[in-house]
């Protein structure tokens, strides 16, 4: 088996394990999300695998719940981004004309503001909750999806087979869902993977800055922030949640790389 395939299998296994852990957090985590079950800052032990935090909560349990929150939030935001971005991007390409122009300009405008700054501004005003986070991140990320979906669709729309469909008298629905989307779908799927891993980084950055899910809810970015003071003593525990993020994003990237190579090979045939 080529190296890329081996890495992709490892990546897929990692994603599977992390997602299962997140889904079944209440059954897997040894303690509750916010239960104070020990003394402050207990070291690693058999009872508390990664020790406890400043108010005696089990860090491993908070990591497991945190994964559930971070991944769930990022997944929802990515789905929203794809729903908005691919629908509008494909529409802009297929309809062309002023629809394309207006949507394109609006998208450029949103992309002209740095994402993190924009998110900070809006979240400061409307306040952070799961819903506002999903909405803000979803809309900001949809600009990237829009760009890709539009450029993919534009190149497809100008192919002769779409011209043939138009000449055949096909409806707009057929052209979009039967001619354009099936061809752009593999690339959009790969982009979904990349966007998802980027969104996890984004969500955790916001949490790290204190604008993610609000305490006492656990999430991977906030866990680093909560326990950051331990780092000054050379304790790496606060880095574990960040490590979990890295593991997940690397795993997603490995699978996406393999998948992209596969669809490139197929289209080169």
């Amino acid at each position: 088996m080529p190296l890329e395939t081996v890495l992709a299998v490892i990546g897929a296994a990692l994603i599977f394990a992390i997602v299962i852990t997140a889904l079944f957090a209440p059954w897997i985590a040894p303690y509750g999300e916010n239960a104070s079950v020990g003394g402050a800052y207990e070291p690693w032990s058999a009872v508390h695998v990664f020790g406890t935090d400043s108010i005696g909560r089990d860090i491993l349990s908070r990591m497991i719940y945190g994964g559930r929150n971070t991944i769930g939030l990022a997944f929802a935001a990515t789905c929203l981004a794809f729903f908005i971005g691919s629908a509008l991007g494909t529409a802009a390409a297929v309809l062309g004309g002023w629809v394309d122009l207006v949507l394109g300009r609006l998208n450029d405008l949103l992309m002209a503001i740095p994402q993190l700054i924009f998110a900070l501004l809006i979240l400061t005003v409307v306040g952070s909750s799961a819903y506002t986070l999903i909405a803000v991140i979803g809309v900001l990320e949809s600009t990237r999806v829009f760009r890709l979906a539009r450029s993919l669709s534009v190149s497809i729309v100008h192919q002769d087979f779409v011209e043939v469909a138009k000449l055949r008298g096909e409806s707009l629905g057929w052209i979009v869902f039967r001619e354009v989307v099936p061809v752009s779908f593999p690339n959009l799927l790969a982009e979904f993977g990349l966007r998802f891993s980027f969104t996890i980084l984004f969500v955790s950055s916001l949490s790290f800055l204190g604008l993610g899910l609000q305490p006492p809810t656990a999430d991977w970015g906030a866990l680093v922030r909560e326990n950051a003071s331990l780092i000054a003593f050379g304790d790496v525990t606060p880095l574990l949640p960040a490590g979990a993020i890295a593991l997940l994003t690397v795993a997603v990237n490995l699978v996406v790389d393999w998948y992209l190579a596969k669809i490139r090979r197929r289209s080169a045939l």
Binding site: S205, A242, G243, I245
Partner: peptide, 11 residues
């Protein structure tokens, strides 16, 4: 690229 910035910083 897959690492959060604060992770690199803290490491």
């Amino acid at each position: 690229i897959s690492l959060p910035e604060y992770f690199v910083a803290y490491v």
